[in-house]
Amino acid sequence: MNIVVCIKQVPDAKDVRLDPETNTLSREGVKSVINPYDRHALEEGVRLKEEYGGSLTVLSMGPPQAAAILSEAISCGADEAYLVSDRAFAGADTLATTYTLAQAVAKVANPDLVLCGKQATDGDTAQVGPGLAVRLDMPFVTCVKKVHTVSDGVLTLERMMDDGYDVLEVDLPALLTVVKEINTPRFPSLRGLKRAKDYQVASLTAADIEADESQLGLGGSPTQVVKVFPPEKKGERTMIEGSVTEQVDKLAEIIFEAALGS
């Protein structure tokens, strides 16, 4: 089974803090990491490859520094890694992103299975997986929490729903997006780390993936950000002052009135 995993570099959510003075994001010291969901997608790829054989390719569209997460993916068990990077991609919304990724996938692999994370933690759109599947003309299943079996070109799996879960069968080739429950990602092995050290991540430009320029980046994006602004604040607010005992008394009163008293 030939597997492609799409991974994205995102700022580490744990580090993202608000600057109380300016009310903007302070990005100082914020590390860039593999999107947490994509770690699980990668792990599932490695697991399925170990069980069913085949190859595992990872892809990321992003700036040159995203090569770091691709190296990391190699150390975790991926065979090949490609960085899809070109200034022409800047400003891509999800429609332009899926176009670019689909061109890249078609260029480097003929996958039976494409794996994505459920969503990227920087934008949280969860749109790239389904969109990419449409472009590759594959069926897809989102929020997969378990892959049971692969046999005769059919995958059996569980997909999370708001009120429980569905058990599905899906014909290969297919695309899945995964949630964290699906597995526990492993740490890189020593062998993997060694391989990553020597491995040269290949770069693909817009020309390399034979892209139609009009569908790339900002120009290829139907959505436009027209305004950015801080969220509105609520008007009135009472601060409870005094000693701890006084504050606790007042709090208890408010809580009682608002909730328990009525």
């Binding site: 429609l95 759109t125 749109q127 389904p130 599947a133 708001d162 139907p222 959505t223």
Partner: peptide, 23 residues
């Protein structure tokens, strides 16, 4: 923006070649 909406609406938007804003 439910499990169902977030799953198949992106498919429809891509097929119609149009934009989609989540959440």
């Amino acid at each position: 923006a439910t499990a169902i909406g977030r799953s198949f609406i992106p498919r429809v938007a891509t097929s119609l070649n149009t934009g989609l804003t989540a959440d």
